[in-house]
Amino acid sequence: MNLVRSELLKIRTTSTWWWLALGAFLSIALAFAINAWLAVTTLGGDAEEIGVSAEQATAPAQAANLYTSGQYLGLMFVMLIGILMVTNEFFHQTATTTFLTTPRRTSVIVSKLVAASLLGFMFWLATTLIDLAAGAIFLSANDYGTQLGEWPVQRALLFNLLAYAIWTILGVGIGTLITNQLGAVITAAVLYLIGTQVVGLLFLLLSNVLDSQAVLKWQVIWPAVASQVMITEGTSEFTPSWWVGALVLIGYALVSGIAGVLLTRRRDIA
């Protein structure tokens, strides 16, 4: 518990989190504007024109989308915080002090994982409160009602929380794998932003080669896709059930957490 407190204090006493929070806030604003436009268009009956399926063109589905605005970049920002929690220790050579204070390295990494998920929770809370306020006003103003009583909406909000916690944990795992600060941040950001498109293309290619649409569902093995699948209502030819996405993400969090602990236990701190 002391260790988690110490980890949270580490984050609070530098300005990094503040910049990432600002970035997350801007991405909420941007995403909300886009999602609002999407909601008006699809619910106004033009869903077909912009390629949104009928299943997605319901008021609850669009409300869920609106209430999770900013998730795409927000998840990247919490992942970056997770990465920085580890790489900062090496970049600023504080790993020595940290491990002198707590020679039990497993405890250090576990406390980082706990602090990371708490931080993920804080980011989710802030994002969701903003989205709820703005979304409820927007939907009511357009006569759709707040839709907050709908299960798909509630489910999206809850699983979004899971996503924030897991992505921060994933960041900690990546940080222990790549301790070079710049290397870890760039690798993770590129994989997150561009990797998803590349994976999408690869699977499209693969489905053509194999002449099978079912292959596309396997995109879910990519964490960013899994995250999207988890909070999306309903299935289609291209997306598996939400729980598949959830399992994949939890799997990644477990693997990176365990790998982080094992690597850190063995590493010489020089």
Binding site: T13, T14, S15, H92, Q93, T96, T97
Partner: peptide, 12 residues
């Protein structure tokens, strides 16, 4: 223990 001089976060 005092191991290296520069062992604190620069922004803290």
């Amino acid at each position: 223990a005092v191991l290296e001089a520069s062992s604190a976060h620069k922004g803290r």
